[in-house]
Design a protein around this nucleic acid. Structure first.
Length: 929
RNA sequence: GCCCGGAUGGUGGAAUUGGUAGACACGCAGGACUUAAAAUCCUGUGGCCAUUGCGGCUGUGCGGGUUCAAGUCCCGCUCCGGGUACCA
């Protein structure tokens, strides 16, 4: 009987399902281990071979941990809300819930065929009301909490109200949108509406007028991580800046904790670095510059307070509130025009014209508090309203943007830092600002002669003494815009009374997404929910029309898996205490600045509330590399329907066109199939090369439908089986590396499985396995494999595990070893990688329970050591011959044996031995000259 | 620009702490079995030179260095990939 993967895989997948093998529960007698995959967004295209890479790795690890005695939680679900389903709904009128359900079903079928050990009983879908009830619940909690900087955690907003009632803002130190100042009396005299407005300034989930990324084409605002290079990540549509009243989450309050937490978790350095950059902590000073002939003060943030004597002008962001207060009547017209002009520029235009400086003089002057000099205040969009105070002191000599601005508008430049080993230079000769990280100060009054770090300290002291500013830490991380003007997302549990937002009572959750007639904004320009009939509370108050963004549903799903059917809480204390946190999270690095920040924030908030017991949700995180596609091209001669083969194309003017890789084998085009592929090519003609072949070009690109290079796992499974797919994806190379999909090596791993099979049965299907005692050689092969594979799984080196299996099976085949004592442990080792074939053989050996619960074999040291060591003997570092010696040979014996070996003569002749280096068990190196 | 990765045969890759570079697999070449094919098995396979034999030289992107010994460590570059960018 040959290895029949089709029958075997179907049979055992059914068995696992029937026996509920993968369902887990709290078991206090066993340690827990939580292995999580980033759940997929179920797109219409289905899974391609890139998706399962991480899933296979995590599945191997889960099975390995389970076999090692852990109670393993390994769940899966679907990130089911999102833009593509809604865009599709707009085009077809089909309800996104229907397409989403169809796509999920297809994903599920594809996943099931690969043989994953998911506990599907714990499946979550973010669009399921039973699930999003808890997304809404968390939002309500955020609405009713504020961030207390003294306690350094979220506290109930009731506490803040109490403080307002007794002492106003006097002792309040809370994260807020705008610094407010009022007395208890003033607070008590405010109307309810005014009080609510004040509270929004402190709530962790708050509504405020903020500068947002507005994408007209998608008809919605986007968060910072959803925009790149001035266009939306989904769809690539232009994005502009606009002030809108939007929900935001005060994630910036957690910036420091999000940064510090990185030091406590086991993530790749690159991922941590991306998050650190995104959080963007910078230490500096806030300094107040009074405005001349006015009581307005200009507060600026700088990391280089020491260069303050080099300030020759100030710059305000066009959006800054100060602009209106300081602009002089003579300059007003010009300033207004500039502001209108900058508003019209899209984010993309701003970015593409980085080098071109624009700006306008405000007419006002600021006074440098250190030397009392007057400097002009300019307005320019190179200063961002959202960072720091939206105003800067410009030091053109040492900042290239300020330098460019000064040159454009002919403003003076004063050098204040001279780099080590240089002389003060003539600034008019410079073509860029001078680096000022190291050096000493000049033209700087009391700072003259000081080194940069000393000067920074002195300036800070001075600022504090004179009370003209303060030392301050700034973060780049902005609050997360949380509203989307979209249909297919979680509704906010919010209604409006007198224009102010209030949350629904928890008992009214979930607030279900209503049906609407069209998935488009209303005529009045309201979001799609404006079309819903009766979209109001039972008391008649209108409900929020925005929905939540994609990251809402994925921010706490890892907690829900711990207790997915609980309708009383997001997660019970008992379940959370047991499962605690994710021990291993595998997923792509593309979520570094989105999901992985939001989820950490969300978790920390719940930690502050005492809902969860761990401050960090993902203890270890491994990024799997991308599997890229290998695309093929045909070359059409411009203006014709004639295609020219790859090696002849240089003689023609051609356009490369992607061709579906299923029409190409080893880069040779199947011409007939190509003609049938599209009516456009029915009458195509071809210029062929030698052998009448049409050779295609190729490139490694992203795997995507539009490139016609998608490889579907179902086809591979059909041809080779799931076990081969699993092994091959691992064999391809290190998990974390990106690599193009190429089926060239797949025969090798398939052959390996057949070879493994043949250790157990002969051609007729008769079991060959015997109960004979294994000899030392066989035990050595086994135990070395156990040691190697165990170690390699622990360090996520799955590709080397596969080669270790191959070596082991090759050696056992050579020895014709069919002994149970060897083969049984070997099966267990292979089972996490190839669960189906090993389950079949396991049962053939007479077992009746699943191999997944067979205890992981332990290697025995006595088989790992050899009695002898084959020493490489080198002369001056070059290996010349090998010498077999007893493992316990002394250094002197080794030296003697090496020097007396006959092969050594040749290398010793006419030379003097200077030194002999012996590393026992490793190497002998003889230094001669 | 800045930050982080990476570069090893025809190909994917291995070498975990500085200690035999190229494991394992693909591909290729030759052979066995077979009427034939498939399947399977065996041999060879970095380059150059010598092949009558032992063998020798060279070789991990480039240039230098440390060391008895460097793919691995240090310095300087080149190229590729990723992140980020008027962040003061």
């Amino acid at each position: 009987m040959e290895y029949n993967f089709k029958e075997i895989e179907k049979k055992w997948q059914q068995f696992w399902k029937d026996q509920k093998i993968y369902e887990v529960d709290i078991d206090k007698n066993r340690p827990k281990y939580y292995v999580l995959d980033m759940f997929p967004y179920p797109s219409g295209a289905g899974l391609h071979v890139g998706h399962p890479l991480g899933y296979i790795a995590s599945d191997i690890f889960s099975r390995y941990k389970r076999s090692s005695g852990y109670n393993v939680l390994h769940p899966m679900g679907f990130d089911a809300y999102g833009l593509p389903a809604e865009q599709y709904a707009i085009q077809t009128g089909q309800h996104p819930a229907i397409t989403t359900e169809i796509n999920i079903k297809r994903y599920r079928e594809q996943l099931d065929k690969i043989g994953f050990s998911y506990d599907w009983n714990r499946e979550v879908k973010t669009c399921d009301p039973k699930y999003y009830k808890w997304t809404q619940w968390a939002f309500i909690q955020m609405f009713h909490h504020y961030y207390d900087n003294k306690a350094n955690k979220a506290l109930p907003i009731k506490e803040l109200i109490k403080q307002f009632e007794t002492s106003g803002t006097k002792d309040v130190d809370a994260a807020c949108t705008k610094e407010l100042s009022f007395t208890a009396e003033e607070w008590l005299n405010m109307s309810e509406k005014e009080q609510q407005e004040v509270l929004l300034n402190y709530r962790i989930a708050y509504l405020a007028d903020t500068m947002v990324n507005w994408c007209p084409k998608l008809g919605t605002v986007l968060a910072n991580d959803e925009v790149k290079d001035g266009v939306s990540i989904r769809g690539g549509y232009p994005v502009e800046q606009k002030v809108m009243r939007q929900w935001s989450l005060r994630i910036s309050a957690y910036a420091e904790r999000l940064l510090e937490g990185l030091d406590t978790i086991d993530w790749s350095d690159s991922l941590k670095e991306i998050q650190r950059n995104w959080i963007g902590r910078s230490e500096g000073a806030e300094i107040i510059f009074p405005v001349k002939d006015s009581d307005v003060e200009m507060k600026i943030f700088t990391t280089r307070a020491d260069t303050i004597f080099g300030v020759t002008f100030m710059v305000l962001a066009p959006e800054s509130e100060l602009v209106g207060k300081i602009v002089t009547s003579e300059q007003k017209a010009e300033v207004d025009k500039y502001i209108t002009d900058t508003k019209k520029r899209t984010e993309r235009e701003r970015l593409s014209e980085v080098k071109k400086m624009t700006g306008v003089f405000s007419g006002a002057y600021a006074i440098n508090p250190l030397n009392n000099k007057e400097v002009p205040i300019w307005i320019s969009d190179y200063v961002l309203a959202g960072y720091g105070t939206g105003a800067i002191m410009a030091v053109p000599a040492h900042d290239s943007r300020d330098f460019a601005f000064a040159r454009t508008f002919n403003l003076p430049i004063i050098q204040v830092v001279v780099p080590e080993g240089e002389e003060p230079a003539d600034v008019s000769q410079w073509d860029d600002a001078k680096d000022s990280k190291e050096g000493y100060l000049i033209n700087s009054g009391f700072l003259n002669g000081l080194k940069v770090p000393e000067a920074i300290e002195r300036t800070k002291e001075f600022i504090r003494e004179k009370k003209i500013g303060d030392v301050k830490v700034n973060y780049r991380l902005r609050d997360a815009i949380f509203s989307r003007q979209r249909y297919w997302g979680e509704p906010f549990p919010v209604y409006y009374k007198d224009g102010m937002p209030y949350t629904l009572d928890e008992s009214e959750l979930p607030l279900e997404l209503p049906e609407i007639d069209k998935y488009l904004p209303t005529e009045k320009g309201e979001p799609p929910l404006g079309r819903a009939k009766n979209w109001k509370t039972k008391d008649g108050y209108p409900l929020e029309l925005n929905t939540m963004p994609g990251f809402a549903g994925s921010s706490a799903y890892f907690l829900r898996y711990m207790d997915p059917h609980n309708d009383q809480a997001l997660v019970s204390t008992e379940a959370n205490q047991y499962w605690q946190d994710v021990d291993l999270y595998i997923g792509g690095t593309e979520h570094a600045t989105g999901h992985l920040i939001y989820a950490r924030f969300w978790n920390k908030f719940l930690y502050d509330l005492g809902v969860v017991c761990k401050p960090e949700p993902f203890r270890k995180l491994v990024n799997q590399g991308m599997i890229q596609g290998r695309s093929n091209f045909v070359y059409r001669i411009k203006g014709t329907n004639t295609f020219v083969s790859y090696n002849l194309k240089k003689d023609y003017d051609v356009t490369p066109i992607h061709v579906d890789i299923s029409l190409v084998h080893n880069d040779i085009l199947d011409i007939e199939a190509f003609k049938k592929w599209s009516p456009e090519y029915k009458d195509a003609e071809f210029v062929l090369e030698e052998g009448n072949k049409y050779v295609c070009g190729w490139a490694v690109e992203k795997m995507s439908k539009s490139m016609f290079n998608v490889v579907n796992p179902d086809n591979i499974i059909e041809q080779y089986g799931a076990d081969t797919l699993r092994l091959y994806e691992m064999f391809l190379g290190p998990l974390e590396q990106s690599k193009p999909w190429d089926t060239n090596g797949i025969d090798g791993v398939h052959k390996f499985l057949r070879k493994t099979w043949r250790l157990f049965t002969d051609r007729e299907g008769k079991l060959l396995v015997s109960d004979d005692k294994p000899n030392r050689d066989e035990l050595k092969i086994l135990h070395r494999t156990i040691a190697k594979v165990t170690e390699d799984i622990e360090r996520f080196s799955f590709n080397t595990c596969v080669s270790a299996f191959m070596i082991c099976v090759n050696q056992l085949s050579e020895l014709k070893c069919h002994k149970r004592e060897i083969l049984e442990p070997l099966l267990i080792l292979i089972s996490p990688f190839a669960p189906h074939i090993t389950e079949e053989l396991w049962h053939l050996l007479g077992h009746t329970s699943s191999i997944i619960d067979a205890p992981w074999p332990k290697s025995d040291d006595q088989y790992l050591k050899d009695d002898t060591v084959v020493y490489p003997v080198s002369f001056n570092g070059k290996m010349r011959f090998k010498l077999e010696m007893p493992a316990d040979a002394k250094k002197e014996e080794l030296e003697k044996a090496a020097l007396e070996h006959e092969a050594a003569n040749k290398w010793l002749e006419g030379k003097t031995v200077r030194k002999v280096i012996i590393v026992p068990g490793k190497i002998i190196n003889i230094v001669v000259s």
